[in-house]
């Protein structure tokens, strides 16, 4: 079996599929981060909404991705292709992102918030100077899960006409071509791992060293 050989022989096709795949993932990621992080922040301040929103995210998450593609492709204005693919993947990203933002904000030590409030921070200052920075580790964990997830599920968009790495796998199945399947799977994994790695680097830059305690120990706050 010669996966490398397959990739070399079909370089332009593989490259085009890879490009499409990454483009779709990045667009979805950008939209999801904007939409779901703000949703997560919103429901952290309105606990009543939280249950309903997270519940909705869970329900969406439990629907097989192929079903979501199948359901939305019939909606007028969406149809086969990029628009439906983007929408479905953004919906998929809802659960891990919203939940991690919500959990991150909620896990912030109450005494720290109390101290901030006692020093005269306004609600917005509490959010931006205390809750958000302290929630970053949890949020980043959610972002990394989402990146890997979206990269994988994006392969399914091939069934509604996306020309990405899923097509290599799908055609590999149809033709019984193992090299084609493995090539597709391999490149998807590499993309997922690379994006995860990039996020890991970014995490180290963004998250305060005060929260990056070695040995997995939670930072000791207070006494």
């Amino acid at each position: 079996m010669n996966v490398i050989g397959f990739i070399r022989d079909n370089a332009s096709l593989v490259l085009a599929y890879t490009g499409n795949h990454i483009a779709l993932v990045l667009v979805v990621l950008a939209l999801s981060l904007g939409l779901w992080i703000s949703t997560g922040l919103l429901i952290s301040r309105h606990e009543r909404l939280a249950g309903a929103v997270i519940g909705l995210g869970n329900v969406i998450f439990c629907i097989p991705s192929i079903s979501l593609f199948g359901l939305f492709m019939s909606v007028p204005g969406l149809g086969l292709g990029r628009r439906t693919a983007t929408l479905v993947l953004v919906l998929y990203a809802m659960m891990p992102l919203v939940r991690s933002v919500h959990a991150g904000i909620r896990s912030v030590d109450g005494t720290v918030v109390d101290a901030g409030k006692g020093m005269g921070m306004t609600g917005l200052q509490l959010l931006l100077k205390i809750q958000v920075p302290m929630a970053w580790p949890a949020v980043f964990a959610g972002i990394r899960v989402t990146v890997v997830l979206i990269t994988g599920i994006a392969t399914m968009a091939t069934f509604i006409g996306e020309r990405n790495l899923g097509r290599l796998i799908h055609q590999g199945i149809t033709r019984g071509d193992a090299e084609m399947i493995i090539a597709g799977a391999l490149i998807v994994s590499v993309i997922a791992l690379a994006l995860d790695y990039a996020m890991g680097r970014m995490e180290r830059i963004i998250i305060s060293p005060g929260l990056q305690v070695q040995g997995g120990e939670r930072p000791r706050v207070g006494a």
Binding site: T151, G152, I153, A154, I181, A185
Partner: peptide, 18 residues
């Protein structure tokens, strides 16, 4: 964890050639 990055479609597909 690295195994988890293989898309489900690929996991299903990987075994059937064999």
């Amino acid at each position: 964890n690295a195994g988890q990055t293989i898309p489900p479609l690929a996991v299903i597909a990987l075994f059937f050639p064999f």
